[in-house]
Design a protein around this nucleic acid. Structure first.
Lengths: 145, 145
DNA sequence: CTACTATAATAACAATTGATACTATCTCAG
DNA sequence: CTGAGATAGTATCAATTGTTATTATAGTAG
């Protein structure tokens, strides 16, 4: 039980290392991890609103605005008016984003390979299962503090 | 194998939730997680230099300077000159920091209880083992990119 | 001893992020 | 219909963090 003392620390350090490594690899794309996350989620949910994308990618709406500003000016993403709600925009990825998305796919595969090296399929499953469990636990504290 | 797609995302989201929750709990102490980390590590390694503490707590040296500035003015930490190296300082926690350290202990115990609820002792061990493994994998990429 | 390079701590500045407020539009009670 | 409150998106400003430069001191080669 005492071994768990570092649980929080290792979690944080792990995440930091993971992000740093990812961004080192993604440098040529000049993308940060949140940007990749947004583009990735958008690519499989085209037509959603910014609010929804912010939820899916778990990014602050304000941060998402800036990410989209950039990606729109880079020609990767389109903001179209929502015919049902003139406040909202619907989001689409353009054809120009395809190569970037492929790169992101490749990158995340490489990241996983590096991070999970030496773990069996069963161990990987266990790890995901455990992380998801912890994630649910923490989500619960948000609603019920 | 496809389940692992979200590995990076869940890692990041988990860490964010964990940190947010921790800081929500630590609000009364008006401490952030890095600050707690620094104080905690210092408390079990008194006499070390700032450089060393930055390594132990995995904080940027510059960030640590600011953390120490604050904790020194709050009377929790002392910077004493290093007799062997006039560039360096040696760090000590004061008696005034004791109640804070106890609070930190309590908080991190509560965090662990919340985060790990519903996991058996064996599962917790597995989780730590797997996380440490992944951590080592990522550390290796830093040295050998 | 002297000059060169490295290192600990910090300062000054740049970039990023988060919090708050604002505008336009929507929804709904009356 | 109308007025009150909620919501989507965004601008603005404050706070945090990371980067680069600076200062003082240490180690070391000649």
């Amino acid at each position: 039980m005492d071994r768990m003392r570092n649980f929080g620390f290792i979690l944080k350090n792990l995440e930091r290392l993971y992000t740093k490594r990812f961004e080192a690899l993604a440098q040529e794309l000049s993308l940060t991890l949140p940007q990749c996350k947004a583009l990735f989620q958008l690519s499989r949910n085209e037509g959603i609103s910014q609010k929804r994308l912010a939820e899916l990618a778990e990014i602050e709406p304000m941060t998402l605005v800036r990410i989209l500003d950039r990606m729109e000016s880079d020609g990767w993403v389109e903001r179209r008016p929502d015919p049902n709600d003139r406040r909202a925009r619907t989001l689409y990825v353009t054809a120009g984003a395809k190569p970037v998305l492929e790169q992101i796919d490749k990158l995340s595969a490489q990241m996983r390979a590096e991070a999970l090296a030496g773990l069996s399929g069963e161990q990987r499953n266990q790890l995901m299962g455990l992380l998801e469990h912890v994630y649910q636990n923490l989500l619960a504290t948000k609603v019920n503090p």
